[in-house]
Design a protein around this nucleic acid. Structure first.
Lengths: 343, 343
DNA sequence: ATCGATCCCGCAATCGATTGCGTAAATTAG
DNA sequence: CTAATTTACGCAATCGATTGCGGGATCGAT
């Protein structure tokens, strides 16, 4: 079953011209008579001719498409970012190919190699939480593939980066929780080799310190390497609330951790949960509907996607190799939510 | 800035062979000596040769990729379905190109034409809620482009379809709400030209009828054409609860409508909301965290994506035109949630 | 020694579109 | 009326890989 298409050759044959003439006529060629142009254009219109993008890619050695590597499109931060990416890409006539790593390094590498071999013109990458090794990305970048990293970036790769001000977001959230009168703030985060985790932890620590509160390791729970397992979070929450001095508030560093924590909290007695204040990084569209209720640190995902794409297309279309890279930092937003009341 | 790649020509030159010999050696050609094969394979390995997929596409007149058209990847039904799609596609060595219509017909048409001109080998389509006109799709299908529709399908196109049992899902949900003792069940749905909306409405009616309850238009609220506006839902909910006999339960026909309704309900006095039972179609991963709490009708999105992709690849790889099409129907699942208690 | 049969491999066309170069016809200049 | 231009178009190479066909080399057989 093959899909039938019209080629430039069909036009040439039908009109008794050569393919070169037809090609030039279609592109508004300078050396074709107006009459011929008109005939060609009309006929092309009539049979609904579209140039074959694959043939063009082969010739031009570029595909007019950019690859996106994220951990999960089900995460609202990423789906918003993708919307931003698409808005810019489509305007500039680029296709967007989306791939998911599902937080696994092997999938991430597969996707990246896939995209590179598919001749994408550039790559927009947010690392998986497992990505300690980024040699594949690094080597592609050194070979000249334009890459822009966003959200979860790697210091080892010298290129444009687009991130949120994770430190400040974490600081603000922690500061807010302290401002509510709490002294013991727990922090739940994932395995520490991602820069965003480190920055958010630092922001948390800084806020504690600023208020003269001690940093206590037992209030910090790290997720394991691979993805997020509910049982693990359940255990972490149970441990926290079995402490002789359980936390009065929780600051959670990541979207999926946040919902996992809420699920875990619902397994505790309501009397306890009622008193807890929670703040977490999330771009969920239903954050105000969640119970227990949480305050959300949101990132301007759409804008971040837009900016990353603009930077990438700049790289792609630059005549000479770019060596001067920049890092764009976006402010986070703290959306305060009243604690759950009976509804 | 162009990305440098290794071609078969480089290998040929380096080894003093012709490109044809190298090509045959790489593909395990039958007429190449084992010695030559070994040399070629080793060298190819060494310089990390990858065949250029674009050149292959041009030659083979197929791209080994399938296009996906959905309304929103941020909708968990679709992101799960996409995971199912990818799982099958990747196994069979197909690429997946995802596009979003954002519930707009013009975007949908753009995406479809885009994908078709990009020479995808087939299309997986779930219509936007605006799609009354599907002539573009129909004409591509008639030209021989393999298409499988899922979730939101069109009767006018004769091809494989993968859907949930919307009638039964709606029936079950309504039946459940009636079983709780309610007599007045409201139904919130979107503009009626999508088959899923009609089927769900029919299921709702059938359950009412089965229990001897009257069908009353004033309890049914239709969304407008374009997407979902919160104010519109707010208004619908307000109208419902201003009735002299307000509904005791609500059945909601679609994912995004469901969350919009919850947001609207929270604007009502808690004393009212407390007594309402709600059931809605949604594949949200956080449905048990929502407040007001709702019972969810879920669809086996992952399985549906898988099946649709299997059917599509069958079509693509079929030697002769397929004329015998099937519709696979999947059971929905009712996840019952206790009404919100104070937490 | 000659012929036929294998075995290996290269030439060249092909996929669709672009483009440098060459050239016939038409036009203009001298 | 001839030579120089200009106009308008075609030929063929190119992008990377595949593949039918043809041919040289080697070997065995008679």
């Amino acid at each position: 079953m093959k899909f039938n298409t019209v080629t430039i050759k069909d036009i040439a044959k039908a009109l008794g011209l050569s393919t070169s003439t037809v090609s030039r006529a279609l592109r508004g060629g300078y050396e074709i008579s107006d009459e011929t142009k008109k005939v060609v254009l009309e006929y092309a219109q009539k049979i609904n001719y579209r140039p074959n993008p694959i043939a063009l890619s082969l010739k031009e050695r570029r595909s007019h498409s950019i690859g996106v590597v994220v951990s999960e499109i089900a995460n609202n931060f990423f789906s918003e970012a993708i919307n931003g990416i698409e808005s810019v890409a489509h305007n500039l006539d680029y296709h967007v190919i989306i791939t998911q790593s599902h937080e696994r390094l092997d999938r991430e590498i597969l996707n990246i190699e896939h995209l590179a071999s598919r001749s994408v013109d550039g790559l927009l990458v947010s690392l998986s939480s497992e990505s300690a090794d980024i040699s594949v990305l690094k080597s592609l970048h050194e070979k000249g593939l334009p890459i822009v990293m966003f959200d979860r970036v790697a210091e080892e790769i010298d290129t444009h980066k687009v991130i949120a001000d994770n430190f400040k977001g974490a600081y603000d959230a922690t500061d807010y929780l302290i401002g509510l009168g709490h002294k013991r703030i727990a922090h739940i985060t994932n395995a520490g080799h991602l820069s965003i985790s480190r920055e958010r932890l630092e922001g948390y620590k800084a806020a504690l310190e600023h208020h003269g509160l001690p940093f206590d390791e037992q209030y910090v729970k790290h997720g394991e390497q691979k993805g997020i397992r509910q049982e693990e979070i359940d255990l972490a929450i149970a441990e926290l609330f079995n402490l002789s001095e359980p936390p009065q508030a929780i600051f959670i560093a990541q979207d999926r951790l946040t919902t996992a924590c809420l699920k875990a909290l619902r397994k505790l007695p309501a009397s306890i949960v009622k008193k807890i204040d929670i703040a977490g990084f999330t771009n969920s569209k239903v954050v105000e509907l969640l119970n227990p209720s949480i305050s959300a640190i949101t990132q301007p995902a759409f804008e971040m996607g837009k900016t990353a794409t603009e930077l990438l297309i700049q790289l792609i279309e630059s005549k000479r190799p770019v060596t001067d890279f920049e890092t764009r930092v976006f402010e986070t937003n703290l959306i305060i939510q009243q604690r759950a009341e009976e509804v």
